[in-house]
Structure formats: structure tokens, C-alpha cells
Design a protein around this nucleic acid. Structure first.
Lengths: 241, 241
DNA sequence: GCCTTATATTTGGTCCGACCAATTTGGTCC
DNA sequence: GGACCAAATTGGTCGGACCAAATATAAGGC
């Protein structure tokens, strides 16, 4: 993210972080475009584009007479990534909320996939699981196959709303976790159980089973993620001392 | 939405709808800023701001050399509202997906509220339900109280991720449904059952019960909405002939 | 004819200076 | 203290200009 090395993006990123760090009170007047242009030594056009982006994020409201800062919890999902990257290690509570939400949506997707998918699609899903099972243990090698599976399952489930939400969530979350180097570890035993349950769910057209399996998996992921973060936090503080 | 009567917003709205109507193929080159400026008889600056908004929506990708159109299902949630308003009556499938997703998230919120809320908060929630129960039957009068309840429940649940998603969904959905005049009708009996289950859930700290009640409610809402839409569709076609 | 290379064109990113309309601000007057 | 009016501020838009990167085009070599 923010790899776009344009000035307007840079300004937007800086201002976004300032707002997320609560450097402005909600409802407070935001500096004028001309002031910001002076501060960043940029043209007003560049500042305007940056502000336009912040407005899209729901962080400010621009209206003639001046822009105003909005409450963070009234913003768009797109602020979650930056919010999580605010510190050197991810906010454990936020990650937990993330996984919980993601789990609920993936679980719903699994259910829909079973309910809406035809025989051929379900067989395909089953085959993909078998492929993944073969790679169980090799986390790195499994990752792409796993994503591919989730993606196809979303296609079969055919719920655009969930799909769009998951797009945003993935974009916000996965990237941050990768960058911060948090890798929750799941026991092989649990993984096997998940895969088997999913396989059975697709084969016997049991949506509830597949949904439950996913739900359980994400509940385990939450625990694992919490551990991974607390470990990372400990090592960070150690290093600081 | 799009009540902002600025030129750049107007351009953005027009182009957004064109993309949503599939007038450009995914991956295709988007007209240049200068061409668009000529077409809309506006300055390049105004066009640039519009394009910047489209990029935030995930509908196009701007890069030196030209902007490219992206696949709709890779966009942001914020396109759901416009997508739903594309026709004279809402897309039944989309509304159904919407309610299903919303239901899953509200259900999760109910569970979290019960799990995370303290005694005082749960009592407050219970009181709000009693208030709503008194207004049962009067749909219009109930609406604000109901929203207030959902909002407070979200506060108690304290899951920022879900909250932000619901912000976006509500902004996209509720407004459209209101504008299109679709009002799903829920039987008073079902409503009473929902309220009683919720009350019991909060009182006895049974998160599963509250979650299930919400889930059931939204499942009924889906059916009701489908009926309301099909009715609206029929009357529309009748009127057209 | 096909492929590579060099050139010209297009395109996005940025800047400047200017103007308008609406809001905000400050002062004045009652 | 409150209502009213004028000046300063602010966002919205315009036009023209320049740069660097990417694209399309023409020229050249095989």
C-alpha cells in the first residue's frame, strides 16, 4: 500500500496517520488547503487530491467554509490497515476482531458455496482440498493453494457483498500481517480436521458442517495469532531494553 | 448520495455508473484526462479529482501511461449502493445477499455484546428492547429506536472491524431501500419473538441465543424483502404497459 | 516479411496564478 | 447582549505550462 510515490499520496498518507493518531479532535476544523500546501511545500492541487482521498476514507468532511475531522469509528474499512500499522507490532485486540469477523464471513461463504454450488463445482472444491492436504505442514507452499481455494469458494458462493467486504479486509489485513511478520501457527492435527470436515461438507452437501469447520478454524487462528503477537511484543520490548 | 453538487462529483458519478453498467471492459484503457475534460467541458483538475475518487472505489487503476478499468468484483464496498440503484427497482439477489451478510454481522455483534458487555450495559440494552416492544406495530416510530438500539449494541460489542463494515453497508443499503420505497413487512408475532429472545439473551448472558434470534430475524427479513421487491417489480411493469 | 531500435506522441503528476461563490469571522450598531 | 453588515477566508474551478514515464510510430537492420 501507499507504494504510489506521488506527492498527493504522500500528503494523504501523512495526514491520514495524523488523524488516526488522534492528533485532531473529532469535529475540529482541518487546516485549510492553502495552509497545507505551504506546510508540505506542494501545490494546492496536490493537496486537494490528498484531501479528496481522506474524504473518501471518511476521515474528514469537506464543505465550503472548511473541512472538518470526523470520528474514526465513522470511517471506511480502508483505514483498518493503516490503523493496524500504527505501532511496531499489531494491536492484538484489532487482529482478534479482524479474524473473528473474517471467520464469520468465510464461514458464511462456505455455507453459501455448499448451498448454491452445483455438483461439478463442489467436486472441484473437494479436489482443491485434497491438493492442500498433500502440502499440509509446508506453510509457505500451502499459502497460494489455500488462497486459490478461498477465491474459488467465494466464486461458487456467489455473494458479491461478502466478496467485496473480503476484498477490502484481505487488502487491509493480510498485507499488514505479512509486513509485520506475524505468522500464527496452526497445529497439523487441527488443520487435518478442518480439511476433512470441509471435504465431507462439500461431498454430502452439508453447509452447516462446512460453516462450523471454518468457524472453528478461525477460532483457533485467533488464539494462535494472539500468541504470535504476544511473542513478537515480548521480543520487541526485550530488544528495546 | 452524491448530493454534493460539485462538478468533480458529477463527473465521478457519471463515470462510475458507466463502469458499473459494464460500458468498459475490464482491463480496457480508460479515456485520458484530457479527453474527459473535453467531453465534460471541464478543467483537467476537476476530471483528475473525479478519477481519483474512482480509483478509491477500486473501479479504475491510475498509472503513468493511462488508467485502466478494473473488474467490478475487485472494487470496494462503496459501489454497492450505486450498483443497487442502477435499475428502477433493486436487484433482488443483491438485496438478499445484503441482508444475509448484514444478518451474519449483526448476529456476531449480538453475541459479542453479550460476551463483552458488563451488567449495566446489558440492562441498558434490555431496557431499550422494552421500549421498542411498546412501539411494536408502528413501523415508523420504531425505526429510530431500533437504530439507536443497534448502535448501542455495536458500542457494547466493541468490534471496530464489524462496526466499520456495518457503517459502509448501512450507508449503501438503507438509503437505497428508502429511496426506492421498499419496505419489507415483518409479522408482529415474529417481531415479538425476536424481542423476547434478545431480552432473554441479555438477561441470562446467553450470547448464542441472542445471535440465533438475530439470525432468524434477518432470515425472515430476507423473505419479506424478496416479496416486497417482487411486488414492486410487478407494479412497475404493469405501469409500464 | 519480421524484429529491433530510435524517435515522436500521449499520458499522468505537478505547479502557478487567477477568479467566483459561499461561509466564516470580526466589528459595528442598536 | 444580540442582531446586522462588511471584510477575510475557504473550497471549487479554470487555463496554461512543464516534466518524466509510458506508449505508439517510424526507421532501420536481419
Amino acid at each position: 500500500m501507499s507504494a504510489n510515490n506521488t506527492i498527493s499520496h504522500e500528503i494523504a498518507t501523512t495526514l491520514r496517520d495524523e488523524i488516526l493518531r488522534q492528533q485532531y479532535r473529532s469535529g475540529e476544523r482541518f487546516p485549510s488547503e492553502r495552509d497545507l500546501a505551504g506546510r508540505f511545500d506542494a501545490s494546492r492541487g496536490a493537496v486537494r487530491e490528498a484531501l479528496s482521498q481522506l474524504e473518501q476514507l471518511g476521515l474528514i468532511r469537506i464543505l465550503p467554509g472548511g473541512a472538518r475531522v470526523q470520528a474514526v469509528d465513522a470511517a471506511s474499512i480502508a483505514i483498518l490497515g493503516p490503523l493496524m500499522a500504527q505501532d511496531d507490532f499489531p494491536d492484538a485486540a484489532l487482529v482478534d476482531q479482524f479474524l473473528q469477523t473474517f471467520g464469520a464471513l468465510i464461514s458464511l461463504t462456505a455455507k453459501n458455496a455448499v448451498d448454491n454450488g452445483n455438483r461439478e463445482q463442489l467436486n472441484q472444491l473437494e479436489d482443491m482440498i485434497v491438493e492442500i492436504s498433500k502440502l499440509a505442514g509446508d506453510f509457505e507452499a500451502m499459502q497460494p493453494k489455500w488462497r486459490e481455494f478461498l477465491d474459488y469458494m467465494a466464486t461458487v458462493a456467489d455473494n458479491l457483498v461478502v466478496r467485496l467486504i473480503c476484498n477490502d479486509l484481505k487488502a487491509q489485513f493480510v498485507e499488514q500481517m505479512m509486513k509485520l511478520g506475524v505468522k500464527p501457527e496452526i497445529k497439523k492435527k487441527s488443520l487435518t480436521l478442518l480439511l476433512n470436515s470441509l471435504k465431507l461438507g462439500f461431498r454430502s452437501k452439508d453447509g452447516e458442517l462446512a460453516a462450523c469447520a471454518m468457524q472453528n478454524h478461525f477460532d483457533e487462528l485467533r488464539v494462535a495469532a494472539a500468541q504470535a503477537i504476544s511473542y513478537k511484543m515480548a521480543s520487541f520490548h526485550k530488544e528495546a531494553v
